[in-house]
Nucleic acid binder design. Sequence first.
DNA 1: GTCTATAATTTGATAGAC
DNA 2: GTCTATCAAATTATAGAC
Lengths: 185, 185
Amino acid sequence: MGDTAQQIIDLAEDAIATKGYSAFSFREIAALMGIKSASIHYHFPTKPHLGLAVASRYRQGYAAALADIDAQDLTPEAALASLVNIYRQQLGNGERMSVCMMLAAEIKLLPVEIQQEMQAFYALNIDWLQHLVQRRQPTWLPAESRVLACQLFALLQGALMGAKTQGSPEYFEQAVVALAKLWPQ
Amino acid sequence: MGDTAQQIIDLAEDAIATKGYSAFSFREIAALMGIKSASIHYHFPTKPHLGLAVASRYRQGYAAALADIDAQDLTPEAALASLVNIYRQQLGNGERMSVCMMLAAEIKLLPVEIQQEMQAFYALNIDWLQHLVQRRQPTWLPAESRVLACQLFALLQGALMGAKTQGSPEYFEQAVVALAKLWPQ
DNA sequence: GTCTATAATTTGATAGAC
DNA sequence: GTCTATCAAATTATAGAC
């Protein structure tokens, strides 16, 4: 994977996070790079190929971030706070929504390979949260910790979506306070 | 507003809920009605006009549904359960996501009038939930009840988004269990 | 690897007949 | 109100030169 291909993925990710998969175009990526759209096709034959490359790298980067948290041997509470921080960072970057949120909304329009990538992204998040819960509640059945993992993830995603839509970081902060309330005391 | 205009809005709402504002077209609506796209322009001069009509009617219908709940003089718990039922109904309708979710994801691309409609939709929801919370916790400050309202709404939206994206009604059911945990006992 | 040139399609929108 | 016809623009994608 060359530098040019990397830069194409960078810009495509940004475009998808801002406009969505349907609305972003090869030409706008090319224009930002000072090349022609035909050159993009040299690196990624079709739009589904480029979209899949974006989604796949996005999931892998996310998995690496979760692994980083794990490597710090934090308490479950602190590890969850680190995840919240990852989401919090997305509040600042202006026109950009979240790649996950855009592809989630468009999922019925996506090539099946990208749909599968999104399913894997969800599984990654929920599995990670489930392990976190299980570590804090060792006596729980896996089914119990999975339910709480779903609750935590739904709240986190809803908080980010609402904050981005309203342009209100406060909304995010107020919503994520509820995460702590979902842990058993 | 004639019958034809109503039917156009019906089909446009369905298309927006399925494909989003950017990806739906006048021609597909016209084809479903057995007319030509030029005829759509007679009823709605531009795409922003039609999009605004969809968003506005959607918000008004939603407001009416909330008013219906209010008219039943339910307990706050039962009223919240009724709202959850409204969201639950969206799990069944196949390819359709939620109008709110699609327009929320695309908000940066929307004509400003539709953006404002979305802001009004969020305000409607949060104000309604805030009143609900205030009714259950009469001694709370408005700021406190507003925070809980944001938490409830974020969880509800995240639950629907995750369930729709994964095609998993169970995800929704597991996530919304947490709504009860957020109420003070 | 990037270019020019172009094909094929889709889109929002308008003019004018009926 | 709906039609035909059309425009101007944008899009994905390909062929072939350099």
